[in-house]
Design a protein around this nucleic acid. Sequence first.
DNA 1: CTAAATTTTTAGACAAGACTAAAAATTAAT
DNA 2: ATTAATTTTTAGTCTTGTCTAAAAATTTAG
Lengths: 217, 217
Amino acid sequence: MHSISEENYIKAIYHLQGGKALVSTNEIAGRMNTKASSVTDMLKKLADKNLAEYVPYKGARLTDKGVLCANQIIRKHRLWEVFLVEKLDFSWDEVHEVAEQLEHIQSQKLIDQIDKHLGFPKKDPHGDPIPDRHGNYEKTNKTVLSKLKKGDKGTLIGLIDSSKNFLKYLDKQHMKLGTHIEIVDFEEFDLSYTIKVNGAELQISKLISDNLYIKLN
Amino acid sequence: MHSISEENYIKAIYHLQGGKALVSTNEIAGRMNTKASSVTDMLKKLADKNLAEYVPYKGARLTDKGVLCANQIIRKHRLWEVFLVEKLDFSWDEVHEVAEQLEHIQSQKLIDQIDKHLGFPKKDPHGDPIPDRHGNYEKTNKTVLSKLKKGDKGTLIGLIDSSKNFLKYLDKQHMKLGTHIEIVDFEEFDLSYTIKVNGAELQISKLISDNLYIKLN
DNA sequence: CTAAATTTTTAGACAAGACTAAAAATTAAT
DNA sequence: ATTAATTTTTAGTCTTGTCTAAAAATTTAG
C-alpha cells in the first residue's frame, strides 16, 4: 500500500501535529534526521496520495485518511511492543527499535491475531494507548508530574520521553507503570521535587518531572 | 547489514543450488520473477561483498559466508512460520507470504527469543528443518513417495512443493505431517498410486506422489 | 564445424528516496 | 519598511534496484 518511507513520514507528522494547524518542514526534518529538501519532496507525494494537505512554505497536516493510516501504524508499533515485553522478555528500553521494523509488516490478519494473542491490551509498555482496528483509543486523564503540588498523590501511568536513557533511569529507581508516587516537597530554586516512591524518598530534577504522567488518586 | 533485495537473491541461489556447481542467471531470474539483466547486476554486487562467487556467462554459487547468511534467513523464515501456526492460528497455507516479510527483520535477540518461546522447534509447519544460530540443522532420512513400492508403510514428514493449492489439497484429504500412509497399489499406466490414509483408500497422481516426503517405518 | 538458437552481459534509462547548493519566500530586527 | 536571518523550495546529483534493447558469448543443431 504505502512504502516504509511514506509510513515513517506519516507517523512523524502525526506525532508532531498535537494541537497545531500545520507542522513545518523543518520540524519533520528534525524528527526524522533528514534534510528539509527531502521532506518537501515527500510532502508533495503525500499530498498527491491524499494522505496530507501541503501548503508550500507553511507546512503540512494529515488528512483524515492520513490520520487513519497513522493510527494503524501506531497500533502495530504498540502491539508489537507489548508482544516483545510480555511474550519475549524484552525490557521496555529494548522494544522501540525492533517495533520500528515490525510496524511496517503488511498483514491485517497478523496484527489482529497478535492483538487477540495478547488479550486486546489497551496500553503499551510505556503507558501509551493502543488504537483498535478503527483507529479509536482510550484517552485517560493524566497530569504531568511537574504540575503537581506538595501533598499530591497518584500513580505513574505514562511517559513523555521514552528514550533508552530515561527508561534505564526509571529502572534504576525501581519506577515502572503503576508505581505509586507522593509529592513530598518542591524546591522553587531549581524546580526539583522530592517524591516518595516505594517507601523511599527520591530527588527528581525538573527534566524528569516534565516527562512523567501521573494519574491523581 | 544486507539489503532485503540482497537477502532475497541469497535465498534464491541457496534454494536453487542443490548439488550443482553453479546456478545460472536465468534460473535465478525465473525463481525471482525478475529479468536476467537485474540478476547479473546483483551477482556482481554479491561477489563484491564476498557472499557469492560469480563466473561470467556461467553462473554463481554462494561462498561459505553466503551460505551462513542464507541459513540465518531460512532460520528466521521457518521460525516465524512455526510461530504463526502455533501461536496465532494461521493455517499452513497462509504462513509463507507473511514469513517472507518477517524474515528480513534485523534483531538477533528477537529471533533467539522467538526460538525459545516456541521451545526450539526442529521443523517448520511443512516439515522443513530449522537451522540453529550457527546454521546447523537436522537431516532426516526421507524418501519421495513416488520411489515407494506396493506394501511400503511410512509417515508423511515433509513436502517438496509448498504452494497454497497443494497445501489446500492435502487439507481436503485430511493429510498433514505425521499422517500414516500405506502403499496399496501402483498403476504402471499413469504412474498413479492407491494409498491408505486415515483408514480410507485414496488415488494420488504422479505429481502428488512426487511432492510428498515419507519416512519409512 | 559452421549456423542458428539461446543465454548472458552491457549500455542506457527510470523510479524512489536522499543529499548539496543555490534561489526564493517568509519572518525578524533594526 | 528595508535589511538581515531563517526557512523552504528548486535544481541537479547520487544510490539502489529495476527495466528494455542491443551486443556478445555460449550452446545446440544440422
